[in-house]
């Protein structure tokens, strides 16, 4: 029984770590450019397709991974900001949110048009090791380890480097940041590029488990959005905590809860937090003049 629960915990943390990566992108974009990117889940799908496409075209896997990252940086980072967010942002949050949903649909249909509707396997790490009576998959260790290292590095970058602090200042108050001489536009662009890198990493880590399919983005995006709300939409560490918590809770709820309601767990959690702790687990309550 104990080992079963440890097994569930490991699997849940591995899934939750990928939610955390995607959720971190949500919070980064929200903080620096007030963008709620409803296409975030579909952003995970594009680099996954790019990587398997380049690999199938004959590139070795490391080069295909690099190619996928470059494509994500260009399309999901720079182009997303310059061609969609910048023109739409002045119209308010709602039009931008709707434009992001439209972008998500376009990404889904675009990948379907190019790669077809069927799912594709993604390269993974084989094997594992025994831990007591459990067999722990190297893939799960890789997912958990890589995700945690990535978010720790991100936290260090934001807190310990000059560029990171400039990004935080931009997030907290762009006007004051501009007065202080911080290149705000460059910082915002950097955030979008960081988000593109995070979704590429999430794509590499989660795709071996969920496979690569044009419509995977919907469920990933929803889970990551819930994770970001649960953890605290204005805190990167909150998004990480929310992702891990959600991944673990999904597994335990599916095991010990009623089967029919397993898909409702993230939604119930989301509603609970919105009602009773809207700032999330680690988020800050903020005031806004209306």
């Amino acid at each position: 029984m104990l080992w079963d629960n440890i097994d569930l915990l490991i699997a849940g943390l591995a899934t939750g770590a990928t939610y955390a990566l995607v959720a971190t992108g949500f919070t980064l974009l929200w903080q620096t450019s007030a963008t709620v990117n409803f296409a975030q889940g579909d952003f995970v799908t594009l680099p996954a397709f790019a990587i398997i496409g380049l690999h199938a075209a004959g590139l070795p896997l490391p080069l295909a991974l690099l190619g996928g990252l470059v494509i994500a940086l260009i399309v999901l980072g720079a182009m997303f900001k310059l061609l969609l967010v910048d023109p739409m942002l002045s119209h308010g949050l709602l039009p931008l949110g709707i434009a992001a949903i439209a972008l998500g649909v376009a990404l889904q249909e675009g990948t379907k048009a190019v790669f077809g509707a069927e799912a594709f396997p993604f390269p993974s790490v084989a094997g594992g090791f025994d831990l007591g009576p459990l067999f722990v998959n190297w893939q799960d260790v890789l997912v958990l380890g890589a995700a945690l290292i990535a978010v720790a590095a991100l936290q260090m970058f934001l807190a310990r480097t000059r560029t990171g602090r400039c990004m935080q200042a931009t997030a907290q108050n762009p006007t004051v940041a501009l007065i202080l001489g911080i290149p705000v536009k460059r910082m915002v662009m950097l955030t979008f590029l960081l988000n593109a890198s995070l979704v590429t990493l999430a794509a590499v880590l989660i795709s071996p488990a969920i496979l690569v399919k044009f419509d995977n983005g919907g469920s990933i995006g929803l889970s990551a959005f819930c994770a970001a709300i649960i953890g605290g939409f204005n805190q990167v560490r909150g998004a990480i905590a929310g992702g891990l918590l959600l991944g673990v809770l999904e597994n335990f709820a599916a095991t010990y809860g009623p089967d029919q309601y397993r898909a409702a767990v993230p939604m119930l959690l989301l509603i609970g937090f919105v009602l009773f702790r809207p700032q999330g687990l680690l988020g800050r309550a903020t005031e806004r003049a209306v």
């Binding site: 097994d7 849940g12 469920s219 095991t255």
Partner: peptide, 20 residues
């Protein structure tokens, strides 16, 4: 007797229920 959802991502709980 273990139902699952279409599009379900994780089967850790399902396999555990069956194994137990």
């Amino acid at each position: 007797d273990v139902p699952s959802e279409a599009g379900q991502v994780s089967f850790a709980a399902d396999v555990l229920k069956a194994r137990r």
